[in-house]
Design a binder for these strands. Sequence first.
DNA 1: TTCTTCATGTAACCAGTTACATGATTCG
DNA 2: CGAATCATGTAACTGGTTACATGAAGAA
Lengths: 177, 177
Amino acid sequence: MSLKHAIMVLLETEAGSGYDLLKRFKQRLGFFWQASHQQIYQQLKVMHQAGLINCQLDIQQGKPDRKVYAMTEAGHEELLAWLHKACKPQKINDSLLVKLYGGHLLDKSTLLAEVRQHKSQHEKALLIMRDIEQQYAQLQGAERDNLALPFLTLRRGILGEQAWLAWAEEVEMFLME
Amino acid sequence: MSLKHAIMVLLETEAGSGYDLLKRFKQRLGFFWQASHQQIYQQLKVMHQAGLINCQLDIQQGKPDRKVYAMTEAGHEELLAWLHKACKPQKINDSLLVKLYGGHLLDKSTLLAEVRQHKSQHEKALLIMRDIEQQYAQLQGAERDNLALPFLTLRRGILGEQAWLAWAEEVEMFLME
DNA sequence: TTCTTCATGTAACCAGTTACATGATTCG
DNA sequence: CGAATCATGTAACTGGTTACATGAAGAA
C-alpha cells in the first residue's frame, strides 16, 4: 500500500487536515495518484492509531472543526524506510485497450466515438499541465530549485499525454478508413 | 470491475481453462492488463455461477484435469453490453512518481539508482514489443487484417514506453548534475 | 537433483468504490 | 434560491494481494 506513503509525503512538508490533503492530492499528485475523500479519512484514522501521525483539533468559528494531522518521528522514519526501498513497477489495467482488443465485436464508428471522448479528456489534461509548466518556466532561483522534482513529475504527465494523443491519431486513422 | 470482461474478450474467440487464460493474459493483454492466477480462478468460479460461462471437464492422461470454460449466450450479451457503454478514464497510481515528488528527503544518487532500475525494465519491455511489431510487419492479407486491433494496442505500449524512456532521460540529466 | 511447466485451488487480509449521512457558509 | 465550498465521517461491498497448498512430468 502506498496511499499511506503518499499522504506522508504531503504531510512531511506541512501539517494538514483530511480536507487539506484531498486538495493537495488533486493539485499536486493528481496526475499520477488518485484518492477519494473516503479513502483519505479512513487512512488518516488508521495512521493515527498506528502512531505515524498525530492529531490536533482546530476549533473554528462559522466553519466545521478541523482535525489537523502532522507527522510524528515514527512516521518520518517509516517514510524514509519506504523511500529507500525499491518500489515495484506500476500496475496498468486499462479497460479501453481491452475494449479495443475485442473491438471486432463492435462497429468502427462506436469505437471511434469512444476513442474521441477519451481523447478530449487527455487533451484537456495536457492543456492544464502545459499551463503549470509555463508558470514554472517563469520562476527563478531558489523557488525554481525547490520545485525541480515536482516539475519532473509534471514532465512525466506531459510526455505521457503527448504519447497518448499521438497514439490516438494512429487509432483514428485506422478507424476512419 | 473489468477482469470479468477481459476474460470474456479472451474466451469469446476461443474456449479455455484458467491456466490457458493466464497464459493468454500474459501474451496478449499483458502490456495493459495484469491478472494473477488466483484472481482468474476465482473470477471464473463466480462467472460460472452467474451463468456467463459454462464449464466442461477435460480429463487428461499424465497431466492434471482441465476445466475448459466457454462463453454462454448470456455471457456474450453481457460482453456486448459492456463494449457498448463508455468506460471511465484509466486510473493511475504510480508510486515511483510519489517517491520522486518527495525525493528531497533522499540523496540524488539513491533516486538515480531507482530510476535506472525501472528504466532497464521499460527498455526490456520495449524490446519485446518491438519484436512483436516486426513480426506483424511481415504479415499480409487476412492474417494482418485480423490482427489490426491487437496491433493498435501494441502500438499504445510502444509509444507509451518510448515516452517513459524519453522522460527518464530528463530525470537522469537532472539527477546527475 | 533441481528447475520449469502443467493444473488447480483456499483463506486471510488489504485496498478501493459506492452509497449513505450531516450541516453551515458563501457566491451568483 | 440553488450551487459550490468547507468539513467530517460510516457501512457494505467489490476487487486484488499474499501466503499457503498439492502433485506429477519432463528437461537440464
